[in-house]
Amino acid sequence: MSKESKTMFRELASYSQVGMTFVFSIFIGLGIGWYLDHKVFNGRTVPYLTFIFLGLGIAAGFKHLWDVSKKISDD
């Protein structure tokens, strides 16, 4: 394999991860919030922690996107 196609392959692998990481970080954030709301605090804080952690999950997804795009512009 040539040098070109090797770097291309490496970048392909890391960028193919972007979409899934974005989706799963949102769901993981939502899941953590739901778990804290319903299991840890027994429903006393019901809508709030879920929404806060959903927001954190979305922010995590966007931060990952930001990091990747910064890496592209750096190279």
Partner: peptide, 18 residues
């Protein structure tokens, strides 16, 4: 830190799911 931990856990799922 919170954001990075969430994004790091997403690795666990995305790598296995793909």
């Amino acid at each position: 830190f919170l954001l990075e931990v969430i994004a790091n856990c997403a690795r666990l799922i995305s790598l296995s799911m793909r």
